[in-house]
Simulated scan of single mutants.
Amino acid sequence: MDELHETPEVFQSRHDYYTRYPNRWARVREPLREAMGEVLGVMILILFGTGVDCQVVLSSAQGVASSQKGEYLSINIGWACGASLGVWVSGGISGGHNNPVVTLCLALFRGFPWKKVPIYWLSQLFGAWLGALLVYANYFHAIDIFEGGKGVRTLGTASLFSTYAAKYMPSANTFFDEFLGAFILLLVVFAISDKRNGPPPPGLVPLVIFILILGIGAAFGFQTGYAINPARDLGPRLMTAMVGYGHEVFNYRNQYWLWTPILGSFCGGITACFIYDIFIFIGDESFINAPSASARRHFAHAKASERPMAPAGFEPDHVV
């Protein structure tokens, strides 16, 4: 009993309360959580992806390793791990977009707030740049040996961080290669985030992402490096330009970086989502299912979504 003659149970029920901001930092952190979720998610993607690129390729040089550490399948698995774990890191906070194409498609077709799109894009780009910088800091001595001299930097090792097409491919083919990869990615992402299409349980969505990226890499990876994510290519490309690779990383094949990994990915992703919504999706979030004039007169509408935080599939701890 206290001086108010309240038992501990009564005191707690009357005076204890929940606050989202137990201290000053919690209040500062709140508006940063979604952006930092995207930064960390993409950073994880790039750490595993460019890290396995460096390990497999650089270990083939004498003086770096006694034998090559991995093969092409290792690269596929490394990128798949990065993609799935990146979604796991950011899924419950930001929705686990980790890709500007995903963010744009959710804004176009699922009602994701347009005001958040620039924030997500900048966060994804920064996360990719940061992840690539950390991998470069870890492997730059091995890069010196592989290149044949301290500070020597060529596109041969720049390709460990960003994508560069096979020499035999014409420009239209490189565009289509990235278009096709992004088409597959977004088609599956929209399918697994559709409540009425047998989505996986929330905890298994990263596993689906692992299988998806592994499959894309194994089937379509070697010609253009399957960027299928503008931030995944542009962030590391900016990093390589800053650490000594120079303007060649942007001048390669007449600004290849713009019209293949960026425009090809956006076009492929948007096309996939448009096709999915035309033929499969029945929720009212998509403009494809906007009620006609006759339906509006009767106050009729399509069903609302039951899972707005695609593609990660985790239940959000806040309202978008």
Rank of each mutant, 00 (worst) to 15 (best):
G235I: 11
R307C: 13
G51M: 11
I270C: 12
R237L: 11
Y139H: 11
Q255F: 14
I278D: 01
E34V: 13
D194H: 03
L185P: 12
I275D: 04
C54W: 02
P261I: 03
T154W: 02
F250R: 05
R196M: 05
K195G: 05
I119V: 06
R296H: 09
F250H: 06
L258I: 11
W88V: 08
G313I: 12
S286A: 07
F48Q: 06
P100S: 00
E38K: 11
F126R: 01
V89P: 12
P202C: 00
P230S: 01
I262M: 12
G86Q: 09
G283D: 08
L122I: 09
I270G: 10
A227E: 06
A26I: 02
A165G: 08
R110A: 10
P113H: 00
F279R: 02
A137M: 13
P22M: 00
V87N: 10
P308I: 04
L204H: 04
P31A: 00
W129P: 15
P236R: 01
G268H: 08
V208C: 07
N289M: 15
G156V: 00
I262G: 09
Q62W: 09
G235N: 08
V135L: 08
A295N: 12
A272K: 08
A293S: 15
D194R: 04
D144Q: 06
I275H: 02
W79L: 11
E3S: 10
Y276K: 05
R20E: 09
A218W: 14
F112W: 01
Q124H: 00
P236S: 02
F220R: 13
L108D: 06
V42C: 07
M36Y: 15
A312F: 05
S286L: 08
W257C: 12
G78Y: 05
F299M: 10
T7C: 10
V188L: 10
V64R: 09
S66Y: 03
V249D: 09
P100H: 01
I282G: 06
Q223P: 14
N23P: 04
I119K: 03
H5V: 13
A128P: 15
A35Q: 11
G131C: 07
V208K: 04
G70N: 02
F314V: 13
K167W: 00
N76R: 04
L160H: 00
